[in-house]
């Protein structure tokens, strides 16, 4: 079984978000980058399939050279090899096209991406890869078992869980539940040493289109002062919620 895990290189969840160049670009200054959390759940699931079902796991990112430490971390976690497609990601469609062009050459059985990235939050890439490849697709994927050519997946829906059965090849949008938080693999010394020997190959970009562009960023308007209500005045709180905020 050949598995591809798509890795988005994103600012750490504790990062303060600021913009530069006339609010047209994200300010990377002092920001630590991590594997997108949903991708990390997916990568861990892939490593289990490698350990228990002899899968070969490839990590890939579409991005510039600054993404390489994130890919090295994927290798240290256990991926067999890594690719970087050398182009600046600008929108979800372009990234999906770049990844699909690679997938067409490699015939992966399973392509894992995150349900959503925490920076762009498009929720676009995995679905678009599946459509471009003509593969099956399960997003919000919180459970996955593979037997031969068949996948059993669980998808979180609004107010419940759906069980799905489908044939490979399959693209999933991974999220928590696929593995638990406590299962995430923290690279050890051995993993880090081995990662240095593994191949991280830079691939030239293919031709792709862009279907959207960002003209500017902004931060939410500063919030008004909080209104504190005394714990002995719950009636007053209810009145405020009813008459002032009009939410109950």
């Amino acid at each position: 079984m050949k598995i591809l895990v798509c890795i988005s290189h994103v600012p750490d969840t504790t990062s303060k978000i600021n913009f530069v160049d006339d609010s047209s670009a994200f300010d990377k200054n002092g920001v630590q980058f991590i594997i997108n959390p949903n991708d990390e759940f997916g990568l861990t699931r892939a490593i289990w399939l490698q350990q228990k079902q002899q899968a070969e796991v490839t990590a890939i990112t579409v991005g510039e050279v600054s993404c390489e430490p994130t890919l090295r971390k994927c290798l240290a976690i256990g991926a067999n090899r890594a690719f970087r497609i050398d182009i600046k990601p600008t929108d979800g469609f372009q990234v999906a096209q770049q990844l699909s062009a690679h997938c067409k050459k490699e015939n992966y059985d399973l392509i894992i991406a995150g349900r959503e990235s925490i920076d762009y939050n498009g929720g676009m890439v995995p679905g678009m890869i599946s459509a471009l490849m003509g593969y099956n697709f399960v997003t919000n994927c919180m459970g996955l078992e593979i037997q031969g050519n068949t996948a059993k997946a669980k998808r979180e829906i609004d107010g419940g869980i759906e069980s799905i059965c489908c044939a490979l090849p399959l693209v999933i949008g991974a999220q928590k539940g696929l593995v638990e938080e406590k299962d995430l693999i923290i690279p050890n010394m051995r993993g880090i040493m081995q990662a240095r020997q593994k191949s991280l190959t830079v691939l030239p970009a293919n031709e792709s289109q862009v279907k959207s562009s960002i003209s500017k960023f902004e931060k939410p308007a500063p919030k008004g002062e909080v209104k504190m209500v005394d714990a002995n005045q719950i009636d007053h709180l209810i009145e405020l919620l009813h008459n002032e905020a009009k939410v109950i």
């Binding site: 469609f93 999906a96 939050n121 929720g123 678009m128 919000n140």
Partner: peptide
Amino acid sequence: SSANAKYLAPLLAVSLSAGYASN
């Protein structure tokens, strides 16, 4: 922005060759 709408939107975008902005 329901789970189902977000599931199908990228598929629809590719099949109509459309641009897509979520959220």
